[in-house]
Design a binder for these strands. Structure first.
Lengths: 179, 179
DNA sequence: ACCGTGAAGCTAACAGCGTTAGCCAAGCGT
DNA sequence: ACGCTTGGCTAACGCTGTTAGCTTCACGGT
């Protein structure tokens, strides 16, 4: 079978896909506390040490989930902006919708340094394309837009805004610079 | 002695201050992996179970550190904007300087939902004052500015921007909307 | 001066986590 | 038929946060 790698240029084995799916389901349902090796193994009907025949360690397992998330985000942003008359608000909405629907995955993907060495190349670049397109391919504006969107969704999913905060108005205020 | 609380309206005991300082030093020096109950106790010359006479659990211990960080951030933002001809860029620089100098603390403070029930009241409000002042007390703009700054520093300290990214230009592009 | 109480330390232990070592069975290729 | 590879297993390890119960010391009250 394929070398015991995860997410590199090699394709995943069927078991690795099953592991990623089980891990993803636990993360979505229960957050990081639910994502343990024993829980993932239970979901697959095997014991935790058996996972190590398919992934080198827990970090690699998490990165299987992260890689899937990057693909999903890129697809969501691409779909949102494909035919949009105003791609910027459509992109912002799609970005927020994804994070709000998958807060635990969003945190796993975006709240730590990224092990690029253990992820397929091109994931970040693909996810960045819609932001570049929405800002007229201005790299500085695209990065600023990314930072703003990341900040808005992080603070929202972490419940950091006051309860009475008018988020649509804050989004509008912040996006004004990018129109 | 004071009730066995942490960070509530009661003042901290001397031992709790020592625990917070030891925890903070370990976090700054070694990141979250260095911040264990055994390591904190070692730094104080006692055993880990002894800590539970002073803090109810590890979360409470971490919140001692978080509370201290909020005070420091507020002080840094206040100092930066007190006499500034242009408070907005001064505020942004102070915010970034703090996060870049204390990335592990910044993550502990800002990368998760906040246990407000276990923190002294007013910490967030005080830290928000300079942002309100810098945006002409426009709540929507202040929140958007906060999101942008949080996004910029998070992506920077997590090494998420491409290595060749012009961060000053991205800061400038993003702040344009708030001038 | 003595006694009781409270505080703060200790040891031993527990439960759960990620991970390793070594064994076994099944399937496949020669 | 045999050897090798794969993928499961059990037992165990080390580390983590935390609890239970014991001991010692200091302080206050009588």
């Amino acid at each position: 079978m394929a070398e015991n790698s995860t997410g590199g240029t090699q394709t995943l084995t069927e078991r690795q896909r099953q592991i990623a799916a089980a891990a993803r389901a636990l993360l979505d349902a229960e957050g990081p506390e639910g994502l343990t090796m024993r829980r993932v193994a239970d979901a697959l009907g095997i014991k935790a040490p058996s996972l190590y025949k398919h992934v080198p360690d827990k970090t690699a397992l998490e990165l299987l989930v992260v890689a899937g998330g990057f693909v999903e985000v890129a697809e969501a942003l691409e779909a949102a902006t494909a035919d949009a008359a105003e791609p910027l608000p459509a992109l912002a909405k799609a970005y927020r919708d994804y994070a709000v629907a998958h807060p635990h995955l969003y945190r796993l993907m975006n709240y730590q340094p990224l092990r690029r060495d253990l992820l397929p190349p091109g994931l970040e670049e693909r996810a960045a394309m819609p932001l570049l397109a929405a800002t007229g391919h201005d790299g500085d504006k695209a990065r600023a837009l990314w930072a703003f969107a990341h900040g808005m969704v992080s603070l929202e999913i972490d419940g950091r805004f006051p309860p009475d905060a008018d988020l649509p108005a804050a989004w509008k205020a912040g996006l004004a610079t990018f129109v």
